[in-house]
Amino acid sequence: MGNSSKDDSATSGDASAGDVQPANSSLYSEGERVLAYHGPRIYEAKVQKTEIRKKEWRYFVHYLGWNKNWDEWVGEDRLMKHTEENVQKQQALDKKQSIDKNVKSGRSNQAKAKSSMDAKVDKEDIKNNVPKGKKRKTDSGAEKGSVTVEKLVKIQIPATLKKQLVDDWEYVTQQDKLVKLPRSPTVDEILTKFLEYKTKKDGMGADSIGEILKGIRCYFDKSLPTMLLYKRERKQYSEVVANDVSPSTIYGAEHLLRLFVKLPELLVYVNIEEETMTRLQQKLLDFLKFLQKNQSIFFLSAYDGAKVSEGKGKGKDDREAFCSVKLKSFSSVVI
């Protein structure tokens, strides 16, 4: 169909996407089976077409077992590789959704406003990409189930911290290494440090920061065993975390950062108003920047394991030394 129209976007048919490979190739290929978020759930889908638009890969997906009317263009963030792990995620989400329903339906305007925006985007996509003459329910995207994924809070994790997360993934899942516990500084210490820093800077405003940090600590302690561990870390967890001990007094920045990947999924349960959410996002971002600024101090540059790594960071030993000296001044605190 690539030749059917002089429409700027319609030329992107099957052929061109394959031929003209831009610098970074698409993550999903045509014909690939994938898992796709649609609304609050994940569906099995197939990538029909791929193309680059505004420097980002877009994928035209068909939801397996669903009417073609649902076919749509989506971005990378809506798709997942069809792996066993992800299928489990899909099932988990399904389960969760059936319970969630009541909450979601009680949602307020903010949600509606957003989903109407989504609908607009969908429309635009459709306008640009659907060959003429093909009929299509324009608003379909926003209508099928309540759209959750798009509604999730976006927390922009700074690039160097993203890199940290990928390294973390690499160490644990690919190289079979672990973070040596207990960590120093611990999550508690990092949070306290941030609060001190903010209190000095903002005075009064630090009160709300304090509440947010307590919230983060609480999320961390509760979600670490259920959401934040790679499989290979579970044994270590059961060895290190005894009954009444808070993970936030044992684990450190490496695991804390993982929480920020999951934070949107948790915060969605608190039906925060849009204006407050904007402020909260800003504050979370402040905290992430603080982590970033202290990245070399807070994060391990090498994990424990059989093989010694080739040394990811420079001067890691100095760092460790500096770290422990510096942290003598921390008192173990409950915030």
């Binding site: 993550l27 389960k95 969760k96 990928v166 065993p225 259920t226 561990l229 993982r258 349960y269």
Partner: peptide
């Protein structure tokens, strides 16, 4: 109840695929 469910369900951590885009290119 919703929360109990959230916390009883154990799931391994995984990074969203968007983190790996550059690596796999």
């Amino acid at each position: 109840d919703e929360e109990i469910d959230l916390l009883n369900h154990e799931e391994d951590f995984s990074l969203p695929s968007s983190y790996f885009i550059k690596e796999e290119s």
